[in-house]
Simulated scan of single mutants.
Amino acid sequence: MPPHDTAHDGADRHHRHGHGPDAHAPSLAGATLHRPRRTLRVGVGGPVGSGKTTLVGSLCALLRDRLSMVVVTNDIFTSEDADALRAAAVLASDRIVAVETGCCPHTAIRDDIAANLDAVERLEALHRDGRGVDVTLVESGGDNLTAIFSRGLVDVQIFVLDTAGGDDVPRKGGPGVAMADLLVVNKVDLAPHVGADVDRMLSDARSRRGDGPVLATSLVDRSGAQAVADWVTEQVAARVGSLPVDG
């Protein structure tokens, strides 16, 4: 698991109420900013086109009947990823919020997390009635191999690679590959068409990550994300078991 980023956390606390959710988000006026301690916040990062939005949508569809979920998406100038999730009806529309970062994606998830943190806290507060929110997924805008989330924003993070992006990428490593709590090598179905060696990718990834888990996925249909959904479920169970639930 990546080391706790105390420097960034201090900056996060300083800025956390500087900005609200963007104009495309559902109205959250009047929501009490209180985080249910049982909520697990999961960051989903990776390069452009690696399949982050498809993975988030598949996780929602697979887990929504068992877990209370909300999603915050990041794009620089649009709400396109949130719109795609709403159109796919993976969750109720008011459980999906878009943040237009207006800056490099890694800045909004690591360096100045104010907009994302406000969106997360307000969305969780809006759905606090009943059992509260079990899982909040925060999808980064597409970025490079150095993009990791601040631990002031998420509890665990998933990093997604595209098999078609080159089978040498896991070997090149970087913080995203080496430090994410789960590495997903996605689109393995494309390997024969792009000359990629999936076994090599997985071997190189495991070499970079030591004991860190690595999963190969093909999201042609939602069932391809089942192993990732199982991992998320395990993280939720560990979270609930280790923290008291607010009454």
Rank of each mutant, 00 (worst) to 15 (best):
T39N: 06
D221T: 11
V194P: 08
F149R: 04
G45E: 07
V72W: 01
G43P: 06
R171Y: 05
T53M: 07
D134M: 06
T6P: 05
A23F: 06
C60R: 08
L161Q: 03
A92K: 13
V169F: 15
L59P: 07
V42E: 00
A23D: 15
V42C: 00
R95V: 03
I113N: 11
D155S: 05
F149H: 04
R209Q: 14
P244A: 06
R222Y: 08
A164T: 05
T54M: 02
V99P: 03
D94L: 14
L202F: 06
V135N: 03
D134N: 06
D129F: 04
L40D: 14
V97N: 01
V240W: 09
G102E: 05
A229E: 10
T78S: 13
G30T: 09
E234C: 09
T107Q: 10
T136H: 00
H17E: 14
D143L: 08
D197W: 01
L161S: 06
R41A: 10
A31C: 04
G173D: 15
I158G: 03
A205M: 15
A114W: 10
G18P: 00
G141T: 06
I158H: 01
P175Q: 08
H8D: 03
L190T: 15
A23W: 08
H15M: 11
L190W: 08
A180N: 11
V99C: 05
L161R: 13
R239C: 02
D199T: 14
V169W: 07
C104F: 01
D5R: 15
L190M: 11
A225G: 13
G51S: 12
H4T: 15
M179L: 15
I113C: 15
V169G: 07
K52F: 02
D204M: 13
V56C: 13
K172C: 10
M69T: 02
L182F: 04
I148Y: 11
D168W: 01
H17F: 05
L91A: 10
A180D: 05
D162P: 06
S140R: 07
A119D: 12
V44A: 11
H15D: 09
C104V: 08
D168H: 02
S218H: 04
S150R: 01
H34Y: 04
L59W: 13
Q157G: 04
V232Q: 14
D211S: 12
A229D: 11
V138H: 00
V184E: 12
G212C: 06
V72Q: 03
G49F: 09
D65R: 14
P36S: 05
E234G: 09
G166R: 13
T54I: 09
L183W: 02
V160K: 00
G10L: 15
A114I: 09
N116L: 05
L243V: 12
E100T: 03
A88I: 10
D12A: 07
G30F: 15
D75K: 03
A205C: 15
V48H: 04
P2W: 00
H193N: 10
I109N: 12
T39S: 07
R95G: 04
P3M: 09
D5M: 11
R239Y: 04
D112C: 09
P36L: 06
A23Y: 09
H193K: 12
V198G: 01
D83G: 03
G224E: 07
R208A: 12
G10D: 05
L123V: 15
R131L: 11
V228T: 15
A88N: 09
R151Y: 02
A178S: 13
